[in-house]
Design a protein around this nucleic acid. Structure first.
Length: 423
RNA sequence: GGAGAGAUGGCAGAGUGGUCGAAUGCACUGGUCUUGAAAACCAGCGUACAGCAAUGUACCGGGGGUUCGAAUCCCUCUCUCUCCGCCA
């Protein structure tokens, strides 16, 4: 969420910028400023009364020590009265504070000036297209057919033991999956990311820290008995490493990578979008997260984009990079680049990575700060992206590399797979 | 699952009702000394809100209560540790 003082000081700019996200902030910001003014004056009154009560309490203490009980009792009366007065002020204050909070969490992050206008994913701007779209024979197949032909994934078995959206990888399918995870992690650690294996369940505070709660709990699987949530992405546990942390300026950039399964309820999804591997309830992903100094975060975003591009280059997959328009940008992001690979068996582009700069939006909620040169605490910037999400990479790899003789494995994966063809 | 113990500043660790936002040690920062370093010595060193500032207020795991006054007493929740049981 945004800081109230930031809203106060940049009101007009923010209102203008948020129009790109199709969000009208004018009323809500005014409400917030009024509430904040109220908060300040209420707090001042309350602080004043408390200061008086405190000094009286100290006086009473000293009077008792010097055995002047009578005088002390008079002061007790006064103090009790003051306390009565503060009670209602305290109630007002906490009401105001919760009102402020409720409004504040409704305001999305302010988009970066380079975010284009637009209503939906149709308005995203393609900034780069890389690689040749393979020309396959008329007999080309989508990955779900290839999976059963070569016994790579058993969707039916997953249906039986759990339900739709929980595939069972088998044989060379399982090996390819394992190879991809190892390869992605190696690429990331070679680029300086520290590897983590976080928990796959998180507590309420963590789900709240990255913004899954309070609004998006419908997207998460919950273990109600222990009040835990299955992670929808490694972003949740990894970013929460830094909850309530004050880092030293010299520690920037902090770079983390983690492989985790991801669990998403995906309520309401249907149709060709969910066929095969296109959308699952459980899938694997390798995530990269960075904590950065505000002045460097956009350079870092570019570096992360080229890092992911280099992985797709090595996998020899055709891909394009999109700059998300205001309408498609997530609530918390200031600027996002999406990567889509071309899946030639289905003849469509599939999103495989989304790299975002959240600026201080997450940090503010997480209380993730650094001490600047003047010793003052400032909010860090956070960024994250997938490097990469497995299922759609898996799908496009086998679709694009299908031949009469079998599915060819790209060179870079062969040492990890220990085979070069699926036949 | 059963029994017990505990939660205090970056860490360790005092404090069981009255100048306690909190001793002390370590760590850290600045300075003196030194050719440099170490050691020693001096000083500083939590967070948030309000204020130009002085300063004020809140915070000793979370929430609630008792009291003129709570880190300290009471209730409650959460978490951690130890022992026993079970188990990869």
């Amino acid at each position: 969420m945004l800081q109230l003082n930031f809203l106060r000081e940049n009101k007009q700019n923010i209102i203008e910028s948020l129009k790109v996200k199709n969000f009208d902030a004018s009323i809500i910001i005014d409400q917030l400023i009024t509430l904040d003014d109220n908060r300040k004056s209420t707090q001042q009154q309350s602080d004043e009364l408390l200061a008086r009560a405190n000094s009286i309490a100290k006086e009473i203490g000293m009077l008792f020590k010097s055995e002047k009980g009578a005088e002390a009792n008079i002061l007790k009366e006064q103090s009790s009265q003051i306390k009565e007065e503060t009670k209602s002020l305290q109630t007002t204050l906490s009401d105001i504070e919760s009102d402020i909070w409720k409004l504040l969490v409704q305001i999305p992050n302010v988009p970066h000036p380079s975010v284009p206008n637009g209503k939906s994913d149709a308005d995203n701007v393609t900034i780069k297209v890389v690689g040749e779209i393979p020309q396959l024979s008329k007999n080309k197949k989508p990955h779900w057919d290839l999976c059963s032909q070569y016994q790579l994934i058993d969707f039916e078995l997953g249906n039986k033991i759990t339900g739709a959206g929980f595939p069972v990888y088998t044989n060379k399918g399982a090996k390819l999956q394992r190879a991809l995870i190892a390869y992605f992690l190696d690429k990331n650690t070679d680029a300086g990311y520290v590897e983590y294996q976080p928990p796959y369940l998180v507590n309420e505070a963590s789900a709240f820290g990255t913004g899954q709660l309070p609004d998006k709990e419908g997207q998460m699987y919950q273990v109600t008995q222990d009040n835990l949530y299955l992670i929808p992405t490694a972003e949740v546990p990894v970013t929460n490493f830094f909850r309530d942390v004050i880092v030293k300026e010299g520690e920037f950039p902090i770079k983390c990578t983690a492989y985790t399964p991801c669990f998403r309820r995906e309520a309401g999804s249907y149709g060709k979008d969910v066929r095969g591997l296109n959308r699952l309830h459980q899938f694997d992903k390798v995530e990269i997260v960075q904590v950065q100094h505000p002045k460097d975060s956009y350079d870092t975003l570019d570096v992360m984009v080229s890092h992911v591009a280099s992985i797709l280059d090595e996998l020899e997959l055709p891909y394009r990079i999109l700059r998300l328009c205001g309408g498609d940008l997530s609530f918390t992001s200031a600027l996002t680049f999406d990567f889509e690979v071309y899946s030639a068996g289905q003849d469509r582009w599939l999103e495989v990575s989304s790299i975002s700069n959240f600026e201080s939006y997450q940090s503010n909620r997480l209380k993730l700060r650094y001490k600047d040169k003047n010793g003052k605490n400032q909010l860090c910037h956070t960024l994250n992206g997938s490097a990469l999400a497995l299922p759609r990479i898996f799908a496009s790899l086998i679709e694009n590399n299908q031949t009469e003789k079998g599915i060819k494995i790209p060179k870079v994966l062969q040492p990890y797979c220990r085979f070069d063809i699926i036949d």
